[in-house]
Design a protein around this nucleic acid. Structure first.
Lengths: 165, 165
DNA sequence: AACGCTGGCTTGCATTTAGCAAGTAACAAG
DNA sequence: CTTGTTACTTGCTAAATGCAAGCCAGCGTT
């Protein structure tokens, strides 16, 4: 799913950054990993302009990280932007950014830090491979995030859509 | 080291992305982690415009990820941009981008993939915490990268400068 | 068939940013 | 004093960002 401009970059970091080294793209991928799929939901959650959101979603679909999928809603057809495997595989990047952000930056108001929950044992854990509590590998489907500034409830990560792009 | 615009963002990912969700910034951090320190070296390695490089280096210094340090070179005073602890702590983000980029994007010409070497045992390993070969935790000072499109030689990661910003 | 509503954009515009290429200032050597 | 180097700055053009209004397709209702 490489776009033409990636193909000339030998470095995988360079190619990845060419696709997603842009703040709105990364924020869209964060929210998509947490289950956001609809245009108006991204717009509301991110406070992003319509034209920028439309542009970024199109790029993410073209790059294969999201898939634009029609669905029926109360009789009418709507569109949603579903996470693909490539989009889901961004989770380690999001984990790493969360750890860095938590260590090196401060929110103005301590609403409480973001926490990652291993749902199988219920423990808070460092994002990454192995649960700090029980030592098990934390699988995506057992991981939830608590963002206390939004809600005290853990949000499970979204599963990717199966896709052949 | 939070800039004013970060302080209003409760999410650590949002704050991190506010500082570095931009391709040139990420690429500068990649090269700084591999030991690049001088303005003309960044310019040559990245093919970046002077004004953009100057701007990004200033922002990274302001955000505390790099430190601008004078040094003597053949009698004259020059400046270098040294990695700080905060900049060094970007390594997991770079690792995650490398893994993603390697899995989901293709170079035009197979020059060979980027490889991470655990120098204590000499093995190639997956970037991350534990060596695939010997099972030891891969410490920064024992990690080197091979980027075959540049050179067959492993490049050790740069150690951060001690700094109190 | 006509109309209204909604969703998912597009458009026009002003502002900002990106990037090229030339130029500048400070500092050193000759 | 002149020259060269380093680390930028500047002027300019093109592209991107983002606001706010508007458009179009698809649907349901009348």
């Amino acid at each position: 799913m490489t776009t033409a401009s990636q193909a000339s970059v030998p470095c995988p970091i360079g190619r990845a950054v060419g696709l997603m080294g842009e703040r709105w793209t990364l924020l869209i991928l964060r929210n998509a990993n947490l289950g956001t799929t609809r245009f108006d939901a991204f717009r509301a959650e991110l406070g992003i302009a319509d034209n920028i959101l439309s542009n970024r979603l199109a790029r993410l679909v073209e790059a294969g990280l999201l898939a634009r999928v029609p669905y029926r809603d109360g009789g009418r057809t709507r569109q949603e932007y579903r996470l693909t495997t490539a989009g889901a595989d961004m989770l380690p990047v999001l984990h790493a950014l969360a750890v860095w952000g938590d260590k090196h930056t401060e929110p103005a108001e301590p609403a409480g830090s973001m926490r990652v929950i291993h749902q199988r044992c219920g423990q808070v854990t460092t994002p990454g491979k192995v649960c700090d509590g029980c030592g098990e590998i934390v699988r995506r489907e057992d991981e939830a995030w608590v963002r206390p500034w939004l809600s005290p409830d853990p949000i499970s990560l979204a599963g990717p859509i199966d896709t052949d792009t």
